[in-house]
Simulated scan of single mutants.
Amino acid sequence: MSTALLLTVTGLALLDSLNPATILGVALVLVLPNGHPVRAALAYVLGAYLTVLGLGAGFYLAADAAAGVLDGGLIWVRRIAFGLAALMLLRSALQRLRRTHRAQITLPAWFTPWTALPLGAVVTAADLPNAFPYAIAIERLVSSGITTPHGLLVLAGYAMIYCLPCLLLLVAGVAWGDHIRSRLTGLYNRFGQARDVPPSIPAALGLGALAVAAAGIAITN
């Protein structure tokens, strides 16, 4: 397992970890009154971790099997991974061309520390269609030719890095209590409330350029 591969996967995981839905979910759990906010937040993060690891492991095993069985399978894995990343980026670019309404992020009435884990899993799974770095990371693992156990171990690390901002937020909430909660309330009021997001041509162009680059890699390999 090369250092370059680990650095590449780590960088992709750090990019993927900037996930507002999961991060704001943890912030909301810590801000809103409930009997066991730390335990609920930890269960929520665990649900996110298991989802990222489980789905990623499934895709990795399927891609690895396809690369070993199909004629030219590795090339097709690369094409599919970068083609999928290109579609995700293009979808995001098109969304930034129009005004969109984002609903308020709230906790369901059935939320408890016992249901926090499945809620974290559902929220994370719903946002995975935007996780284009994960598709590229899995392709890199398959292309590297590392053993399946090592690949799964790297994916476990990827999922941990994905959850890192949430874990840091949770640690800060435990360490600094009310001070952090007041900051989180401001964060939630800014990003968690219902709001209209205006179109952004520069953002759309940037995402479109990344989509073209990913599509170019998919076509030329």
Rank of each mutant, 00 (worst) to 15 (best):
Q104D: 00
R102P: 02
L97E: 07
P113N: 01
R79V: 09
L167Q: 03
R39L: 05
A21Y: 07
F111K: 07
G145L: 01
L61N: 12
A213F: 14
V122C: 08
R98L: 02
V52R: 13
L141C: 00
I138Y: 11
G145V: 11
T112M: 02
P113T: 03
A121L: 03
V122D: 11
A213R: 10
G11V: 02
T148M: 01
L50R: 01
G145Y: 01
A27I: 04
A67W: 03
R99S: 15
G120P: 06
V45L: 14
A93F: 03
L74A: 11
R183K: 13
V9F: 06
A214I: 04
L170T: 04
F132S: 04
V123W: 10
T10L: 00
A194H: 13
Q193G: 06
L117V: 07
W76S: 00
L117H: 12
V45Y: 01
L15S: 10
M88D: 11
L169V: 03
L155Q: 12
L12S: 00
A48C: 10
V69A: 09
T51N: 07
R195Q: 15
A66Q: 08
R102D: 14
L164F: 08
Q193P: 09
V197L: 15
V9M: 13
P199Q: 13
S182P: 13
V69K: 10
M1H: 10
L84W: 08
L184S: 04
L42T: 13
L14A: 10
A137Q: 05
Q95T: 14
I161A: 09
F132H: 12
W176E: 06
L170H: 09
L170F: 12
G83R: 06
T10V: 04
L24A: 11
L32Q: 00
T185I: 08
T22P: 00
L152N: 03
A57P: 06
S144A: 13
I180W: 15
Q104N: 03
Y134A: 15
S92E: 14
L24Q: 08
L97K: 00
L18G: 14
L128G: 03
L74F: 05
F191R: 05
T3C: 07
L12R: 00
R98F: 13
L14T: 10
P129I: 05
V38I: 12
L117R: 05
L210S: 11
C166M: 01
A103I: 10
M1Q: 02
Y134G: 04
